[in-house]
Amino acid sequence: MTLTVADIAQALGTTAHGDTSLILRRPAEPGDAGADDLALAMSPAYANALADSKALAAIVWDGADWQALGLKAAITVPRARLAMAALTQAFDPAPAPTGIHPTAIVPDSCSVGADPSIGPFVVLAEGVTLGDRCRIEAHVSIGPGSTLGNDCWLNAGARVGRNCHFGNRVILQPNAVVGADGFSYVTRDLSNEERAYQSMGREPLTPPEDGTRHRIHSLGGVIFGDDVELGANSCVDAGTIRPTRVGRGTKIDNNVMVGHNCIIGEDCILCGQAAMAGSGVLGDRVVMGGRAGTKDHITVGNDVVMAAATGLYVSVKDGQFIMGQPAMDMPSYRAREKGLRRLPQMLKDIAALQKRVPKDDASD
């Protein structure tokens, strides 16, 4: 698609300079930008590349001398990443509704809102409800009794189980799974893991009389608030009795696991390979870095940031920045790491001091 400089500035809610009627076909990095591209040079670090490019229009940093850079038009932005959000949305509009593909299975008991796009080999179970303008791509399946709000977008291969309920503008990336049964089993007597936890490893584990795992079914479904996004190949399991919940505006990256009965607050970020064990609770605006993990049945307060690969085994209060395995606050973690780095030299110093102690004194 093409947009004018004026169109783009309006989408970004900012100011355009120069010839705002220039027509542009795509955003591009300065080194790759042609005469009909919009160069992205939102910090002074791109000044030289922009001056050497063929671009006639660019998004530039506040205070840039865009005319000296050889441009005919420029758009200034105060916050680069925020500008990228609006810019990419402007150049990637939703396609026109396509209706219901003839290979899709849509039972009469389903309710489909206005202007749907339901792609090839989609399967809706009995009683599914779709809001207006939902976009359901190829090979998606939605289980019995599930509901989607308006403007939801389920990418190819996504799976939604039974009794899952989405707000408006929910996005599932390819092969995401919502509402699978939780990983929940019980043995007749105490299991090895229960006995190990009770004894804290002080007693050896012997074979149980009956180690058969009896499956606990998940009846609670999943509830997503508005504007939740779930990444490719990520899973959010159904609750056992009550639903697993993900709050409004939360974004979940690829390859993330959210266990059964978890409750996630609003505007959280869960980065790639993060994992929540069952019945955990995250407050609002929590950040889980890549490969961070939480133990079951713990609560993380509001505005907590967990660095990558953090292993959290206890509940934490609001506003902490934690890291490490096991997790601790950042100042404590840094102090520990500094101490560990000094250990080799400290051991050498101790060995040198021991050599200086007379043998007679050393034997006292």
Rank of each mutant, 00 (worst) to 15 (best):
V5R: 03
A9S: 01
T15N: 03
S21A: 13
R25S: 15
E29Q: 12
P30N: 02
L38K: 00
A41V: 04
D52R: 12
A55E: 06
V60P: 02
G63V: 05
D65P: 13
W66T: 08
G70N: 02
A74M: 09
V77E: 01
A80I: 09
M84T: 08
D92V: 13
P97Y: 07
P102R: 03
A104R: 01
C110K: 04
I118T: 08
G119H: 09
L124K: 04
R133W: 07
C134Q: 05
V140H: 04
G143Q: 06
T147F: 10
T147H: 10
L154K: 09
N163T: 14
N168A: 05
L172G: 07
P174T: 06
A176Q: 01
T187S: 11
R188S: 14
L190M: 15
L205Y: 06
P207Y: 13
D210V: 12
R213K: 14
R215V: 15
S218A: 10
D227S: 04
G239P: 14
T240A: 12
R245L: 14
N255H: 15
N255D: 15
G272K: 08
S279W: 05
S279A: 03
V300A: 05
V300T: 02
V305I: 15
A307S: 11
D318F: 04
M328L: 13
K348P: 02
D361V: 12
